[in-house]
């Protein structure tokens, strides 16, 4: 079997860039949403808290980068490719399923890194963000990368289960907006959620990241336990979805 090489990775990266919705939802959309929400929220914020609130909102919207690039991007791309049996063609040319999956993950994480840093740069230049501590910056990145890897597993599982673009994209979009709503990223704070949805919101990491990543960023003391538990929960569910999809499709060609 062939090993992963730079030409394969480069081709994957070009493919990500060539699909307009990945740069749009992964880069342009978070920037746009953050600008709109920040301008709306700042009207009621005292002058002394403006920078802190701006930083909190901007950092919380960075979650849209892994959600759009890794989750929506991979689910929609992979399901389209499965529908056309591109992965099987690549396997017949010597690239194993695991090599293809690993290559896609690396290229998504590279693109995700680009999106993350571009968003941070634009936020920093346009919104006067508070500068992080070095440790806070690295820990914030770590949280987003862990979230990215978890979302990759979930996207891969859903796409591999359906192997069709329509249902995969439908479920992907539903989850994308559900995660945003439950994370308080759609203009409704977690406190304002209906009581039925609050426990679900507490199980997922999006709300914790939205509300607490500012403390991590600034190097302040932070109780990591709820965030870690929620990442473990979403990671566990995503791993189960992915493994079940492998099991479900065990006897079928990719």
């Amino acid at each position: 079997m062939k090993k992963l090489n730079r030409y394969y990775l480069l081709n994957e990266l070009k493919n990500l860039i060539g699909n307009w919705y990945i740069p749009f939802f992964g880069i342009a959309f978070p920037l746009l949403m953050a600008q709109i929400i920040i301008r709306a929220v700042l009207r009621d914020v005292p002058e002394t808290a403006v920078q802190q609130v701006t930083t909190t909102i901007a950092l919380s919207f960075l979650q849209l980068v892994p959600l759009a690039v890794v989750f929506l991007g991979h689910a929609s791309l992979y399901s389209q490719e499965m529908e056309k049996r591109v992965p099987l063609r690549m396997q017949l040319f010597g690239y194993s399923q695991s090599t293809q999956m690993f290559s896609r993950m690396i290229s998504l994480l590279l693109f995700f890194t680009f999106g993350l840093f571009l968003n941070l740069l634009v936020f920093y230049l346009s919104l006067n963000l508070l500068a992080p501590t070095l440790q806070g910056f690295l820990l914030t990145l770590l949280v987003y990368y862990i979230l990215g890897i978890i979302l990759f597993m979930l996207a891969h599982g859903i796409a591999n289960f359906f192997r069709k673009f329509g249902p995969t994209y439908g479920l992907g979009m539903t989850l994308y907006f559900a995660f945003m709503i439950l994370g308080g990223l759609m203009g409704i704070t977690r406190d304002q959620l209906p009581s039925l949805l609050k426990p679900l919101s507490n199980l997922l990491p999006f709300g914790y990241i939205a509300e607490d990543i500012y403390r991590v960023w600034m190097g302040q003391s932070y109780n990591w336990m709820p965030l870690i538990q929620s990442l473990l929960f979403l990671g566990g569910v995503s791993a189960i979805v992915m493994l079940l999809s492998f099991r479900y499709r065990k006897n079928q060609a990719i």
């Binding site: 090489n5 070009k14 860039i17 591109v86 063609r89 040319f93």
Partner: peptide
């Protein structure tokens, strides 16, 4: 089985990149 070359009935590739890019990805070199 890996040493068998196959031209399938339907062969699809990534559509957003050039054919050259696809070929180089498969060959693993320029």
């Amino acid at each position: 089985q890996e040493a068998i070359a196959v031209h399938m009935q339907a062969n699809e590739y990534l559509t957003t990149v050039s054919v050259r890019s696809v070929m180089e990805a498969i060959l693993g070199e320029k």
